[in-house]
Amino acid sequence: MEKLGIAITGSGSAVPKNTLTNEAMTQLVETSDEWIATRTGIRQRRLALPSESLSMLATTAASQAIASAGIKATDLDLILLATSTPDDLFGTACQIQAQLGATKAVAFDLTAACSGFVFGLVTASQYIKTGVYQNVLLIGADILSRWVDWEDRRTCVLFGDGAGAVVLQGNQSDRLLGFSLKSDGTQNHYLNLAYAPSAQELLSDVNITKGHYQPITMNGKEVYRFAVQKVPEIIDKALFQANLTVDQIDWLILHQANQRIIDSVAQRLNIPENKVISNLANYGNTSAASIPLALDEAVRQGKIKQNDIIATSGFGAGLTWGAAIFQWGR
């Protein structure tokens, strides 16, 4: 019998050892632990050393997820890497494929910023549901510390580095219960890591531009407003598609951007605090890594158990946002 449903059967995560506390941030910019913590909920973040690469973090997280799922790297058919900060602008998924020894798997990057994991989850599921692939590795990983202006206190206090991964497998019953994805490019200017060209004359009549990128820029007020309005709406849409009500959710795992956003969304949905998973106090905003990092931590702590129903939502640059409702385990 064909298995055209999906199950999320394993998880893993990895963060750099290097920690930067709010107290240490005061040596870089004019701020304080109280200022950062009350506005964001962040207490510290992990930063990749110059010797640490995205592929190293992603491979560590992926290896854990593969072991957790009880399969081998050679069983993988597809590797999807959700990232905005590849080691190589042409893509990093293939490097991870080689490091894992996943010789059978096709591999490519997917970019949807902080929504990347949710977009990747839906993308990966389509390959399985159409019967094309059976075992898919989805990784969310980012090293945003390399793209932050460390003199801009509005952004440098927010971001950390990390990776999280899950294995999706074909299943008799479909554990992805509902989803909804959205994009609005008219609001792109509120959060971006923009191309910053410099003119270069090759010949007297031939001019080109030399490519660089400027650091992350963000209008925090507008992004906050966008998130608290759109995220509850899209979770409602995903729940409707899943034919579920809010009180049937066991856990809410939002993109770990700001504790005030997480609290506001939970309140609007009437989800009690004891069902909300949050770890951004320890890691900051790790972009595409934040949801799988929080998921894996909760699984390993024994919070999330077999058959628990999880509502998750990612939101961020693009602007993009999406939600997925899934049941943990086989």
Results as ranks from 00 to 15, higher is better:
156 C>K: 05
259 Q>P: 01
63 S>E: 13
284 G>Y: 06
59 T>K: 00
14 A>S: 15
177 L>Q: 10
209 T>H: 04
220 G>E: 11
193 L>D: 09
248 Q>C: 13
264 S>N: 11
184 D>C: 01
240 F>P: 01
193 L>H: 08
76 L>V: 13
292 P>Y: 10
180 S>F: 03
40 T>K: 07
263 D>S: 02
225 R>F: 08
118 V>A: 08
159 F>Y: 05
37 A>Q: 15
202 L>R: 00
310 I>F: 02
59 T>N: 02
57 L>G: 07
232 P>C: 07
164 G>I: 07
210 K>R: 11
119 F>E: 12
93 A>S: 05
97 Q>D: 13
132 V>L: 10
113 A>S: 11
55 S>V: 09
185 G>T: 11
326 F>E: 12
220 G>T: 05
189 H>N: 10
170 G>N: 09
38 T>I: 11
218 M>Q: 13
6 I>W: 10
29 V>I: 14
221 K>L: 14
307 N>Q: 15
87 D>I: 09
282 N>D: 15
259 Q>G: 05
170 G>P: 11
314 G>P: 04
129 K>R: 10
4 L>K: 08
71 I>K: 00
160 G>H: 08
149 D>I: 04
95 Q>I: 12
197 P>G: 10
44 Q>G: 07
22 N>M: 06
230 K>C: 11
187 Q>S: 10
272 P>S: 14
22 N>E: 11
226 F>W: 13
199 A>M: 07
132 V>M: 13
230 K>P: 01
69 A>C: 03
135 N>M: 06
193 L>C: 13
158 L>K: 05
163 A>S: 04
3 K>Y: 13
234 I>V: 07
127 Y>V: 04
221 K>W: 09
164 G>D: 09
22 N>Y: 06
46 R>A: 06
322 G>R: 00
301 Q>L: 02
170 G>K: 00
270 N>Y: 07
174 D>I: 06
310 I>D: 10
251 W>G: 05
11 S>T: 15
295 L>S: 01
141 A>M: 06
72 K>V: 15
211 G>N: 12
286 T>P: 02
117 F>R: 08
317 A>P: 04
106 V>K: 05
209 T>G: 00
27 Q>M: 07
330 R>P: 10
131 G>V: 09
258 N>S: 12
214 Q>E: 14
13 S>G: 07
71 I>L: 06
300 R>V: 12
214 Q>G: 09
271 I>K: 00
107 A>D: 13
41 G>A: 12
15 V>G: 01
181 L>A: 11
214 Q>A: 14
95 Q>V: 12
201 E>D: 03
315 F>Q: 10
125 S>R: 04
153 R>E: 15
202 L>M: 03
37 A>T: 15
79 I>T: 02
14 A>Q: 10
207 N>S: 08
265 V>H: 04
226 F>K: 04
274 N>H: 05
212 H>F: 14
288 A>D: 14
303 K>W: 15
55 S>T: 15
45 R>E: 15
153 R>T: 13
213 Y>P: 01
283 Y>T: 06
124 A>R: 02
17 K>N: 15
306 Q>G: 01
201 E>Q: 08
249 I>R: 00
82 A>G: 07
263 D>G: 01
323 A>F: 03
239 L>H: 01
279 N>V: 12
124 A>T: 06
94 C>Q: 10
120 G>P: 00
256 Q>P: 05
68 S>R: 02
293 L>N: 04
67 A>Q: 12
220 G>N: 03
45 R>W: 14
43 R>V: 13
221 K>F: 07
326 F>M: 14
121 L>N: 04
131 G>I: 08
213 Y>M: 12
